[in-house]
């Protein structure tokens, strides 16, 4: 971007200083995430760069921590658990959240604000409080230390994200479209699946992605509600950091960064599609 020619030298100076400050802050945001990528290839079991790594000596690098991750049964068990729990939790929260969002965005919905505040609350209540309450209550009704318990807990934590994203999509929703469909003879079910669903789908998908990542990253509730049988990747990482800190954790972290880049790409594509359809104002 070219600077306006009327800028004084002081303004020009500030302009470049400001750019440098912003670059530093963005570096603060991103560098810590990428610093672990090379560290995960360390041949030595340390969390820092060895002299061999700095001199780019191939002997300083190794994929042993990745091999450990892919061959050790307890990690593989955690991977399976993470996916099973996240997928089922996502299905439940997407289904229930989308239905609720459809209800909440109807103009006739009574006590809308109160319901909304209640449905969003799992996102706001500190996780330790939700986790403690779930631990006590799920033990009482006999679903603590089961996959079902963890799935239900994660589904509850994921619903606010689905509700928020789908209601956001529905605020831009043109209700004359459903009326047009009805007047052309479509039944309510047909209208819903052929008109409403395709239009709100981006919101539903991004809500589902949020719900998925919420469950996939969640550790407090798993620690309290789950047992060793339900241990997930974050569970393993948490106990790994607390007990014996090994670079396997860095290898897992690197893989998780790849997962988040993948998710981010999908969301970005969805956002662009939405922008094409509704104009840049839609979010």
């Amino acid at each position: 971007m070219a600077l306006p020619i009327y800028y004084s030298p002081l303004e020009k100076g500030w302009h470049y200083t400001y750019r440098v400050i912003c670059a530093a802050i963005l570096a603060f945001l991103v560098v810590p995430i990428f610093v672990i990528v090379p560290l995960s290839f360390n041949a030595l079991p340390y969390f820092t760069f060895s002299p061999e790594m700095l001199s780019l000596d191939p002997a300083g690098y190794s994929t042993q921590w990745y091999r450990e991750f892919f061959t050790e049964e307890s990690w593989q068990h955690a991977v399976r658990n993470s996916f099973v729990i996240a997928i089922f939790a996502t299905l439940i929260s997407t289904l229930l959240g989308t239905l609720a969002a459809l209800g909440l965005s109807r103009s006739q919905m009574p006590f809308k604000a109160a319901f909304m505040a209640l449905l969003i609350s799992p996102m706001i209540v500190p996780l330790i409080i939700s986790a403690a309450g779930m631990y006590f209550f799920y033990t009482r009704i006999g679903i603590a230390s089961t996959h079902l318990g963890v799935i239900l807990a994660h589904a509850a934590l994921g619903t606010p994200f689905v509700v928020i994203t789908v209601t956001a999509t529905l605020t831009n929703f043109d209700h004359s479209l459903t009326r047009a469909a009805a007047s052309l003879g479509a039944s309510p079910t047909e209208t819903f699946f052929k008109v409403t669903v395709p239009l709100i789908l981006p919101g539903v998908v991004s809500g589902a992605l949020f719900a998925f990542i919420t469950s996939f990253d969640e550790v407090v509730v798993v620690l309290f509600v789950g047992s060793v049988e339900q241990r997930t990747i974050p569970w393993k990482m948490f106990s790994g950091i607390r007990e014996e800190i090994r670079p396997t954790i860095l290898a897992v972290a690197t893989l998780l960064v790849c997962v988040s880049i993948l998710l981010l790409t999908v969301l970005e594509l969805l956002r662009r599609r939405n922008e094409r359809l509704h104009g840049p104002s839609a979010s």
């Binding site: 963005l26 945001l29 610093v35 990253d217 972290a253 998780l256």
Partner: peptide, 20 residues
Amino acid sequence: ILVLLPFWTSLLVRTTSWIA
């Protein structure tokens, strides 16, 4: 995207990075 990447990255990954 530089802002959203940390937002989407696992909490434990970011905490691990700071330990390193």
